[in-house]
Amino acid sequence: MNFIKKSPWILHYDGSSCNGCDIEVLASLTPLYDVERFGIINTGNPKHADILLITGSVNEQNIPVVKQLYEQMAEPKAVVAVGICATSGGIFAECYNVVGGVDKVLSVDVYVPGCAARPEAVIDGVVKALGILEQKQKRMRKRKYR
C-alpha cells in the first residue's frame, strides 16, 4: 500500500493491560511517530471509530464493556489486539482473574506482538487493519447491490 485511502479513527480501550502498551499506543500518536499527520485520531466516541485497539487481556468484569464498545461502532470495523496480553494473556495467562486474549470475546483481525508492543508495531497493525477495513467495505457493497 503506497498511500492510504482513508484516515481511520481509533478507539482505544485498556482491557487489563499493565499500561506499557497503552503508553506506546499514545506514543505513536505523538510527535516522534506522529500518525496524526495521516489524519489518524484517537477518539473517545465509539460511534466515530473505525478501529478498536485493545490492550491487555479480558476478564469477567470488562467483557461487557468491550462487547458494548464493539457493538456501538459503525460498520465496517476492525479489531486490533495490541501486545501479547491481548493476544493470549501473556505473562498473566495463569492469573485467576484473566479469561484470556481478546479473541475469547470478539473476532480479532490483527494481532500485534510484543511486551510492550513498540509504536512501530502498533502502527503496522493499524495499517494492516486498514487493508482489512477496505475488504470489509467491498463485501458490504456487494451485499448491498445483490
Binding site: D14, S17, N59, Q61, N62, V65, F92, C95, N97, V98
Partner: peptide, 11 residues
Amino acid sequence: IGYIHRGLEKL
C-alpha cells in the same frame, strides 16, 4: 474499580 484486576500477587 476492578476492571483491570489480574490477581498477579497469587502468581
